[in-house]
Nucleic acid binder design. Structure first.
Length: 297
DNA sequence: ACTGTCTGTGCTT
DNA sequence: AAGCACAGACAGT
């Protein structure tokens, strides 16, 4: 039976397919390239991005694949749809907003955003190449953990009472064939329960999609080490948008893969917990477990 | 391990 | 036909 993840990268204590955290140099190059595209408001030529990043074209492509799990052009398109979305929110003139965002025609906007704006990340995942999605559920200290994955990575992780949550969670992927497969998912579930126990676990390969902004927030969250926390303001600053504190909080709340993207490690500046989609008791339990270090190795 | 060069494929104009 | 994005393979450090 197919295993989840990237077998050739496996080989740590959990036997879980590991995607190594990107290097600082790669993250920095990607950040520079992204900043440039945000200034332009859309995709840029690869050669220009390479100049800005200070490396070869090939390296830019590799960095984007590694850090953001996407390509430079695709990221640029996300930026452009984000730009259009903002513009549409603040103006009544649809046509001007679409042209200002960098689309050559209203039709081009609808052709591109029909796939992006109109779709939730879950819908996108269901329509992605992997039409067969595997799922599993396991009990843990913080409640049942339900995980759904494609062969390319985790798509969804939810926490709670499986008798209540299972049906609606699986229903989020109406276009996919969902197969319960404990065998293929065993290592993934082991890693997720480790995180639930407050134990450090390797990064899991993920196949999630969101807006360009959400992608930046989520990759920033993955860099918070086990046992540490950041404030919403700190995360906003880390992605170069110090004023976007509320947007960061929203992106945390939209995290499709609980635990794997550790949004529970983001708290308020005053030290209070802030919010958590799966219940504040769960967030508190996770942070306490991580802080007291149940680390077994 | 990280990076650049070369190369083939596929898409768009 | 030309230009471009992309990713695999390979070599240099």
């Amino acid at each position: 039976m197919a295993r989840i993840g990237v077998p050739e990268l496996s080989g740590d204590a959990y036997g879980v397919p590991v995607s190594q955290p990107p290097s600082d140099a790669a993250t920095e190059r990607v950040a520079r390239a992204c900043r440039a595209m945000h200034e332009v408001g859309g995709p840029m030529r690869l050669a220009d991005l390479a100049t800005i990043a200070g490396c070869s074209v090939r390296q830019v492509q590799r960095d984007f694949a590694e850090v953001l799990a996407t390509t430079p052009v695709d990221y640029g398109r996300c930026v452009r749809t984000d730009t259009a979305r903002m513009a549409l929110r603040s103006t009544a003139n649809v046509t001007d907003a679409i042209y200002d965002a960098g689309y050559g025609s209203v039709r081009a906007f609808y052709e591109e955003t029909a796939r992006r704006l109109g779709m939730t990340p879950s819908d996108y995942a269901a329509g992605a190449p992997a039409h067969v999605l595997l799922w599993s559920v396991t009990p843990s200290q913080i409640g049942d953990i339900i995980a759904i994955a494609s062969p390319r990575g985790l798509c969804r992780v939810v926490i709670g009472d499986s008798t209540q949550l299972l049906e609606p969670t699986l229903s989020e992927f109406p276009g996919a064939t969902l197969v319960r497969d404990e065998d293929a998912m065993v290592d993934v579930m082991r890693a997720l329960t480790a995180i639930a126990d407050g134990v450090d676990a390797p990064d899991l390969p993920m196949l999630v999609t969101g807006t360009a902004f959400q992608a930046r927030v989520w990759s920033a969250l993955r860099e918070i080490p086990t046992g540490e926390t950041r404030t919403y303001s700190e995360v906003a600053a880390a992605i170069g948008e110090p004023q976007a504190v509320r947007a960061v909080a929203n992106a945390c709340g939209a995290n499709p893969t609980a635990l794997a993207i550790p949004c529970h490690r983001v708290i308020r500046t005053d030290g209070s917990l802030g919010g958590y989609h799966w219940g504040l008791e769960v967030k508190e339990h996770l942070l306490t477990a991580e802080r007291t270090g149940t680390h077994t190795g």
